[in-house]
Design a protein around this nucleic acid. Structure first.
Length: 576
RNA sequence: GCGCCCGUAGCUCAGCUGGAUCAGAGCAUCAGACUACGAAUCUGAGGGUCAGAGGUUCGAAUCCUUUCGGGCGCGCCA
């Protein structure tokens, strides 16, 4: 349970009662009314802005509104005292008996603590990675991959019905280039000497196994057939996708749907999606102004088939057909959007690289045109670049020379957990520095270890308790936890559901990471306090009830840590 | 020229979608805490015009306008 949501309900009920009594006007806008933890704990446990939000529409001053609410709120069984503060905040101090119940509820929920039904099973599509199937994933794909995966887990934990999806760009010119590159490797596998890969083709060694596989499968047959290209292409794409799935598996990422762009074209889905837009008047034949920015020699003014996206908020209308009559990439995306909408998704989330920023508006425009305004929400999460460092020195990568750090190399070197946590320890739109030395460092400087260490410490205590059979005597009574450091932890734990909800609503998994860091910090603090004050230690001889209670408390903290890490896709460590 | 993102402590970044003497954390610097359930930790100190300027209102780091500075993108590539 999210206690702040609970008390928001309590406040709303009180407001409605006042409206019913005619003390407040009807039809008030209550959407901005919140109940949240006060910035400063000294102000109380829960704070609401009700009086200030209602003051203006009610034509009263905030403190007068607060005075009306005060007696009603005081009646609540969980509220010990209500005070009016500052410009009109209403602060609750909760009864001491309330917190043990929060802990008990968390303890009972265990692995589900923090989860909710907020999403009401709404269908959400999270599309991420979607790298071209022309080679292994490189480090640039890492961030989006982890981000998308964590966001999907977060939404799922919050009660949404999530589909994790990968869009395979298997229809464009790039896969033909791939096929030509592989064809060379095929000839090489048959004994021919290939001295140089022509410019424009993919030089990587990772294509050699594809050539060999083709040689094994077809022998020399493809040398003489002039329809070799589609055969080679399909094989290459299939093997590249296997490789990519392998790379993702190394990060513990498993997507359910791998959607083929080509299937949209061959099935006629593109044509019918365009027809649908044409019917609603969103497609026309026309001309576009030349692009600004750097001068393009090839620019020619011509009439073309365009999607009228500007009424939906885009900057310019978008071309659907190339000059040779084939579909643009965007045309496929129109069909793909239509397909997602037809599958019943209410939210389409795209995890993209920052260089795709210019693409967002047209995706939103398409969804609005196809689904009706507001029917389907489109959120594009743009992930900024990851800068690699090694001991403070930037890692040089030259795409032209084919030198790029692969995702697999990074994961192999530092491990999936570290990669995942670090990628999520920043807002997605902030650039991220990733230093191989720093992220594996075992110190407080490294948030992964800091959080893991807290979890490991808890596990260690529980192991000790079990070994000395101190975990089986006495009774749990959360009322026994009265120290300030314990109270700080309880407040932190109580905030977890709210943090998860907020992160899910804003599509910001990094909030979980920061929360976990804070939680770990509170825990380490309590731990060290127990060094100076032995009665604060977790295991106490001859105090069975207190010991058992503290062990249960540790378990709740551990659920919090483990559930949070679970959202991030990081395995909690029981030892380090 | 236009669009999107960013600008917070010396450095790297949070800031709960407009809240309260609120400007925060970590690193770095300085000073402290292990015969101890794991010191890979903890406690404290100094450090700021939230890039600048206007505006919106009870209230702005947060929203709007504008200037400056940085990143990304700008038919028929995907």
């Amino acid at each position: 349970m999210n206690l702040f949501a609970h008390f928001q309900g309590v406040v709303l009920t009180a407001v409605e009662a006042l409206v019913a009594q005619g003390k407040l006007p009807k039809a008030l806008d209550l959407s901005k009314l919140t109940a949240e933890p006060p910035r400063d704990a000294a102000h109380g446990d829960v704070s609401t802005n009700a009086a200030m939000v209602l003051a203006k529409p009610a034509g009263m001053n905030p403190r007068a509104v607060a005075e009306l609410l005060l007696p009603l709120l005081s009646q609540d069984a969980d509220i010990a005292s209500v005070t009016i503060a500052g410009p009109g905040f209403i602060n609750f101090k909760l009864k001491d008996a309330f917190w043990p119940r929060v802990l008990q509820a968390a303890f009972d929920q265990a692995e589900r603590f923090g989860s909710s039904t907020m999403g009401q099973n709404e269908k959400v599509n999270v599309e991420y990675v979607s790298a071209n199937p022309t080679g292994p994933l490189h480090v640039g794909h890492c961030r989006g991959a982890v981000f998308g995966d964590a966001l999907a887990a977060l939404l799922s934990f919050s009660g949404y019905n999530v589909t994790k999806e990968y869009y395979m760009n298997d229809a464009g010119g790039q896969v033909n280039v791939l096929a030509e590159s592989v064809y060379l490797r095929y000839r090489e596998a048959l004994g021919e000497t290939i001295t140089e890969i022509p410019a424009g083709l993919y030089p990587g060694d990772y294509l050699k196994p594809v050539g060999e596989a083709l040689a094994k499968e077809h022998g020399k047959a493809l040398l003489t057939r002039n329809d070799w290209l589609p055969i080679v292409r399909e094989k290459a794409i299939s093997m590249m996708m296997d490789m990519i799935r392998d790379d993702l598996a190394a990060l513990h990422i498993k997507q359910e749907v791998f959607f083929s762009e080509k299937s949209l074209q061959t099935s006629g889905a593109v044509a019918s999606a365009i027809a649908q837009l044409r019917k609603s008047g969103d497609v026309y034949e026309g001309r576009l102004p030349p692009p600004k920015g750097e001068v393009n020699e090839d620019w020619e003014d011509r009439e073309q088939t365009l999607f009228r996206s500007t009424p939906y908020g885009d900057d310019v209308d978008r071309a659907l057909l190339k000059s040779d009559g084939s579909y643009t990439y965007f045309a496929s995306d129109v069909a793909y959007s239509a397909n997602k909408i037809a599958r019943g998704f209410k939210q389409l989330i795209y995890v993209l690289g920052a260089d795709h920023g210019g693409y967002v508006k047209r995706l939103q425009a398409v969804a609005a045109a196809l689904g009706g305004k507001g029917a389907v929400s489109v959120d594009a999460k743009l992930c900024q670049l990851v800068k690699l460092y090694r001991n403070g020195e930037p890692v040089r990568m030259s795409k032209r020379a084919g030198e790029f750090v692969t995702l697999r190399e990074v994961v192999d070197e530092v491990g999936s957990d570290v990669v995942r946590f670090m990628m999520l320890y920043r807002k997605n739109e902030a650039p991220l520095d990733f230093d191989f030395a720093k992220v594996t460092e075992q110190s407080k400087d490294n948030p992964v270890f800091y959080v893991q260490y807290a979890h490991a410490r808890i596990c260690s205590v529980l192991r000790n308790a079990e070994a000395s059979e101190q975990d089986s005597k006495g009774q749990i009574d959360f009322n026994l936890l009265t120290d300030e450091a314990e109270k700080a932890l309880i407040l932190r734990i109580a905030a977890f559901p709210r943090v998860v909800e907020a992160a899910a609503l804003s599509h910001e998994p990094h909030r979980i990471s920061f929360y976990l860091y804070d939680l770990a910090s509170d825990f380490h603090s309590l731990w060290n306090k127990g060094k100076e004050l032995p009665q604060l230690r977790f295991i106490l001889q001859d105090q069975d009830n207190l010991t058992l209670t503290r062990l249960a408390f540790l378990r709740v903290i551990r659920y919090c840590l483990a559930n949070g890490l679970g959202i991030l896709g990081v395995e909690p460590a029981s030892e380090m």
